[in-house]
Structure formats: structure tokens, C-alpha cells
Design a protein around this nucleic acid. Structure first.
Lengths: 342, 342
DNA sequence: CCTAAGATG
DNA sequence: CATCGTAGG
């Protein structure tokens, strides 16, 4: 049974723009820059290759977004363009991210919903600049451990219901999951426990996987589910640069990979891999060490995983690997939702 | 009795400049920029006022030294110019100081001896750049506590003997004093224990003062003594911006001030205050907080204190308040030493 | 290599 | 408001 839902939504939007309904775009339709070749098949062209960008991860410049095309003209199975965009970013410390211009990402991406992981900040230390973003409501779940983990959701439309944690005493003290209920779906924003150096916390991770799966299956019985966040696993060899040498490292153990396989076996889909089954070099995380990002030595750890019955709505699932400000990059999911999804 | 002296002096100077003898200037005499008004009296003109310098403490620029005149034409009581310069700087972390260009200070000041306090670095983590400075030997005493306290001495001429600590078990684990014996004097480089917020370590400080005084008096029976370092006390009201509000704060308690008075009563002289008895606003430390340095809200905590019988040799004692790179600034002592000092 | 907190000053 | 160390990744 669910505990009472709390809503941390104290501030009204300051702008007069008014609230957007989910299913309503946040700005006028843009003409796509690419050719409008119909994408009748699930298979897509690979995302553009990164240029020889030497930008540092600590770059604060507001110009990083000028080169990025945030428009998306991909169609769903019924040849409809997206009408809701959900984005997701492990920010690796929301205060550092703020200092690196993280808010500009929101202004450029303009998602209907943005899920953040690893905010590493207790609720009372969240700067007003991040709690009070015009046009968005926000839900936060912070770790009891200071400066550790923590997740948040920005949303243009209020959720019907918000559930904090998994309702499991052992697993709910670190701020790792918020479940937001909307009319047509449940949205899960999660930061899955890392198994640690030398896999010291693999047991905890396995326990998490178990409870998480239960949670997701329960939700899925009621409404389709959209899971997003840092799943802290690269599912297959194609999902990281060095699969061989990482077989016994956190993020690519058999146990963690099997966890993902099980989840997908319950009727969920890894949207990016569905759309781009052969795309290699597509990562969402690069260690700060060894200049990994410049060399694109990375891992795909961040996912949009959706109930299979949402597939007709799926327009695109993309990795914003040009966006800097964390050791992860953002990802975005584009859906066309209609009343048929209810 | 003294323990065996260790000398941490593994590297020969890399340059071919050769060693300077103490009493030999490290570079050709420069023509002083100021008028050569003879300074027959102990009383001097005040150091120049700081300009409206907005430089940050973290400034790495190598240009900060261009505006500073390191020459000094002050004479001793026999109207002789200096032939030995000793400098002293609480660097507040030698690695951070190195990154802020601290070594450039040495190149510009060119002291015969430079004493450093608060190196905050264990011996094995000292960067080679600071342990291997051409033309200087180095002695180090590091705290057993990582990244805490610690002192060091650079010297162009090898000391005859080097004593590490006070030979007191309770007080010698934090790297707070090196005593170097030269032909004509003992040099003490010290970082006196801070009494702490709410004076939690005032007892330890009092114990230190007691043992330190014994040590100094013992040395003084053999040779004149030059004490330099962060004494962690402002002796009198003139020595800090806010004496009233700091009467019960570390650095200006009656107990600490009395300690300095006692030391001076044993036949030692605070050289700066002797030469500039009325000079106010002369500080060597400014809290990083509240933009204190820009406002010159500071404390005089760093001293050259010498045996009275060295007074005939004293040419000048100056505060390098234009030099940035720490929350303290360097100070320099100019002496003319002759065989009469032996 | 980055984030963060905590201790110290 | 700086310097550290350490934990975490």
C-alpha cells in the first residue's frame, strides 16, 4: 500500500507563460534541419558523430548549446511527431552543475519533464535558483546522508500523485527514486545504487533490483510506466567501450546485467537500443579520469525504459552527448501520446 | 640534551651558481629606488601604503611581483647595509601555494634563508618542485597528522646542525619547530599552536609557550637566536584591526599576549615593532572571510624576534603585504652580520 | 578526475 | 572563505 503522497511544490511559476499541459509543446514547432525522410521503420540513423570538441567538462560557456540541434522530427508508428518530451540527467552535484550553467540546458531542451539524479544536496541547501524555475514544478527526494545521491523532477504539469522511495526501510534513506503519476503513465526517476569499488555494495544493489522490479510491476498493472535515470549498468558489450576489462567491475557484472535483462523480460523496452540496435560508441557516462570523455571511453548507464504498450507512442530516444556539465550527459525521450494511451 | 640532528638534504643544487655563503648577497647590489636618506635612528618611515589593489588571493599571475621593490638600503647602527636576508611565510598549504606561483616569491626576494609554516603536507607528498629548488638546501618537519601544520626551511648555506621539534613528546607530533644552527646564530622557524575556536586548545598553547621559552633560553645561552614564524598572537592593540572584539578570541587573549610579553622580557626583541613603534595597519594575516584583505582587516601574527645582542646588526624588518599566495604574507629581516656576532 | 562533507583556521 | 583529508564514484 502506498503512503500518502507529498508534493514539494511551494512556489507558483513566476512567469505569465502559464502551465503547459502534458502533450502540449513548450514552443512552436520548428522546421527540422535534416531531410524529412519518413522513418517508417523502428531502425534509425545513428546520432551524429561528436566533432573534435575539446571542450572541458568544467566549461561554463553558454555557447555550448549553440551548436546543438534540439529539434526532433522523428515520428511514432502512426507517423505522428512527438508531443511530450522527457529528459533525464545525472548532474553529479546540482550545485556544481548550476555553477557550470546547467540551467541553460533546460532553457534549450525545454522538456515537459526533466528528471535529475545525483543532486548531492540536502533539501535545505538547494539553491533557490534550482528550486524555483519559472514554468516548472519540482519534486525532490534527498539522501539522509549529506551530499550524497538524491533525485529530483521538474515538471511543467503537476503530477497527480508523487511517491517518494520504494516504501522499503532498508533502501529508502538515500534518495534514489521518485514515482510521479500522470494521467497516462507513471514516471519513475531513479538513481540505482552503484555496486562500488571491488563490488562492496553489490548485495545492496541486488536487493534494490529485486524491490525495484516489484515496484515497477505493480505500477505497470495499473498504467504504463516510463522509467528513467542512471541504472548504473551497461546492459551489453555494445554499451561500453571496454567490456572485457570491466566484467568484474561495478556496472558490467553478470549480476547487474542480468538484472537489466530481467527487467526488460517483464515487458519493458530499452528505448535507445530498440531504436538504434547496432549503434556503438553511444554512451551517457565518461569517467572524469584519464580524459575519458575526449576519447569517448564511456558507458551507457542512463536509460529510458518504457512499458511495451507505450511503444506505439515512441518517437525517439536520444543521447545528448554534446551537452557538458557532469560526468553524465542528458538523454531525452520523445513520445506522441493520445487518449488511446489511457 | 639534543638528539642527533638529521639533515634532509638529498639533492645538490642543480645550477652552477654555486653556494652562497651567508653574509654574501645572492645578487649584485641594486641601486635603491628611494632616496638614500641615512637612517641613523631606529625609527623608520612607514612602509608604503597598499594601492587600491583588487587582486584576489588566488591570483596566479606572475606579474604581482613587478610592482614590488625588494631592494632595501636600510642601515644598521654602524651604518652598514644588510648582508643577510631571512624571509618567512606561512604559506597555508605548500601545494596550493605552489599552484599560486609561490616559487616566484623566492626568485624575487632571493633570501639567504626562507622559513615556511603551515606547509600542510607530509614529506612524501611534497612536490619535487618545492623540495628541489636550485641554490637552496631544504629542511622539513611535517606533522604526523596528514595535511596539517608542518614547517620547512630553505637555506643557501647548510646549517651546522638542525634540530627537529622541542624534544617534548606531547608537543612534537605536529611539525611546529625547526632549529637550525649557523655559525653566528640559531635560527628558529616555528608555527605556534593556534588556541582554536572557543579557545579549545588554549591549554596546549600555554604548554607550548612554556616549553618554547625554555628552548629559546637554552639556545640563547650559547648563541644569539633569531626566531621567526607564525607566533599566532597579536601582541598589542596596534597589531590587529579589531582588538576590542577579539579579546576572547584565539590570537588576542590576555594569556597569549602575556606569553609574548614574557618572551620579550627574556631579552628578545620584536624587530618590526622596534623599528616601527607607531605603525598601525601593519598586518601579516587576513582572514579569507569577509574580504578582509581588501579591507586590510588583519592581524600581525608573523614575527622576527631576535636576541637583544643582535640589535647592532639589525638593518630592517619588513612586511611584504603586497605579496599574495596565502592568507598570510611574507616578512623579511635584513641584518648586517660580522665576525663580531660570533 | 570530479563531487561532496568535515575539520581546521 | 580558504586549505587540507576522505568517501564515493
Amino acid at each position: 500500500e502506498e503512503q500518502e503522497m507529498e508534493v514539494d511544490d511551494t512556489k507558483p511559476a513566476k512567469t505569465k507563460r502559464g502551465q503547459k499541459k502534458i502533450g502540449e509543446k513548450t514552443e512552436p514547432e520548428e522546421e527540422p534541419l535534416d531531410s524529412v525522410e519518413p522513418t517508417s521503420k523502428r531502425r534509425r540513423k545513428a546520432p551524429e558523430e561528436k566533432g573534435g570538441d575539446t571542450k572541458k567538462t568544467t566549461n561554463k560557456s553558454s555557447t555550448q548549446y549553440d551548436k546543438i540541434d534540439f529539434s526532433n522530427s522523428s515520428k511514432n508508428a502512426q507517423n505522428r511527431e512527438w508531443n511530450i518530451k522527457i529528459s533525464c540527467w545525472n548532474v553529479d552535484g546540482i550545485r556544481a552543475w548550476l555553477g557550470k550553467g546547467g540551467l541553460e540546458y533546460i532553457a534549450h531542451e525545454k522538456p515537459n519533464i526533466l528528471c535529475l539524479q545525483e543532486i548531492k544536496c540536502s533539501r535545505d541547501k538547494l539553491p533557490e535558483e534550482v528550486t524555483n524555475i519559472p514554468g516548472y514544478h519540482a519534486y525532490w527526494l534527498c539522501s539522509e546522508k549529506e551530499g550524497y545521491a538524491g533525485v529530483g523532477i521538474y515538471t511543467t504539469k503537476l503530477a497527480m500523485n508523487v511517491q517518494y522511495g520504494l516504501q522499503n526501510k532498508e533502501l529508502d534513506d538515500e534518495g534514489r527514486i521518485i514515482t510521479a503519476e500522470y494521467e497516462q503513465f507513471y514516471l519513475i526517476c531513479t538513481y540505482v545504487p552503484n555496486s562500488g569499488r571491488k563490488l562492496v555494495t553489490l548485495d545492496k544493489r541486488m536487493k534494490w533490483n529485486e524491490e525495484f522490479r516489484k515496484h515497477v510491476k505493480t505500477l505497470d498493472e495499473k498504467k504504463p510506466v516510463i522509467i528513467c535515470g542512471d541504472m548504473n549498468v551497461s546492459h551489453n558489450e555494445i554499451d561500453l567501450t571496454n567490456p572485457k576489462s570491466n566484467k568484474r567491475n561495478a556496472g558490467f557484472t553478470d549480476e547487474e546485467r542480468a538484472g537489466m535483462t530481467e527487467l526488460l523480460g517483464d515487458g519493458f523496452v530499452d528505448t535507445f537500443r530498440l531504436l538504434y540496435p547496432d549503434k556503438s560508441g553511444a554512451y551517457t557516462f565518461w569517467s572524469y579520469m584519464f580524459n575519458s570523455r575526449a576519447k569517448n571511453v564511456g558507458w551507457r548507464l542512463d536509460y529510458f525504459i518504457i512499458s511495451e504498450r507505450l511503444l506505439p507512442s515512441l518517437c525517439d530516444s536520444v543521447i545528448r552527448d554534446q551537452v557538458y556539465g557532469s560526468d553524465h550527459c542528458p538523454i531525452s525521450l520523445f513520445l506522441h501520446l493520445t487518449s488511446a494511451d489511457k
